[in-house]
Design a protein around this nucleic acid. Structure first.
Ligand SMILES: [Mn+2]
Ligand SMILES: [Mn+2]
Ligand SMILES: [Zn+2]
Ligand SMILES: [Zn+2]
Lengths: 140, 140
DNA sequence: GTGTAAATGATGACGGTTTTCATTTATATT
DNA sequence: AATATAAATGAAAACCGTCATCATTTACAC
């Protein structure tokens, strides 16, 4: 059994070809942040005939298992990334859709303080900075 | 012509009953943050037979005109609020869906710095803190 | 190998939102 | 005030990402 197989098994899931292949795509793909559709298309290119419904199912199971995390981008569709255990937030280029990551402890701490001030028990947060990336600025 | 009429006219839109009534709902309603469906239902209660498609259209036009701003809540549907010219972010109760507002200059400044560090020209940002509000904590 | 529960893929349903198109309305012009 | 015309409306269907259903296939404990 491959290393990936272990992760799947630990999650209480059977080791199936669709699951191995979805994990593989997320690992080897150029882009770290992929939509279900992106994963589905990459599988087709790889010659794997795996249904889109299965891709959605598997990604959700991986999310529940903590293998993958889901970003809910403004305006509908979600993107997934391999969970690396380090919380981070995202910068999104509105021109080329490139996604960059950042970690900022000051912001994290301020969020916790605000929740406390307002009497909220914070469960999570969602922060996206939208803008034009360096490359797209240079292009215009 | 009413005060509200002026706003609509300034936006280059004809002053129609649906537009006046949608604006009125947003102004007089108990809840500051309302979905299109919320506005639609409030109009029905008021005895105004305005189609849901029109509510969506008018809200989008008001957004374009800067009269209203749209929050894209995690998990699908949007909520709208009257634009008051002061930027703020939101705390959302995952239990009762109540929405609170906050302003935090430290976070705003950090976001600008991060964008600069990454070479991004920031256009906007979206920050939501999810949690359990005070009242919902006390209830359980 | 066999039995059984779990997983898959095709397809349709779903929910929020937008589009279409025939009809109605606001407003500028006479 | 009547007219002309572009804009706005409402009903309905289309849309889009995602999820549920269900008959068939598969993994894996025995
Ligand atoms: Mn990321
Ligand atoms: Mn608000
Ligand atoms: Zn870019
Ligand atoms: Zn609450």
């Amino acid at each position: 059994m491959s290393m990936e197989g272990q992760d799947i098994k630990k999650a209480g899931l059977k080791i199936t070809l669709p699951r191995l292949k979805v994990l593989e795509i997320l690992e080897v793909s150029e882009q770290r942040h992929m939509s279900a559709e992106d994963v589905y298309k990459a599988l087709l290119l790889m010659g794997e005939d795996i249904g889109l419904a299965t891709v959605y199912r598997v990604l959700t199971q991986f999310e529940d298992a903590g293998l993958v995390s889901r970003l809910s981008i403004d305006g509908g569709h979600a993107v997934f990334e391999l969970e690396d255990g380090v919380h981070h937030d995202h910068l999104l280029c509105v021109s080329c859709n490139q996604i960059e990551e950042f970690v900022d402890e000051v912001i994290e701490q301020r969020q916790r303080s605000i929740a406390i001030e307002k009497g909220f028990k914070m469960t999570e947060h969602s922060l996206y900075i939208y803008g034009i990336c360096k490359q797209c600025q240079e292009k215009n």
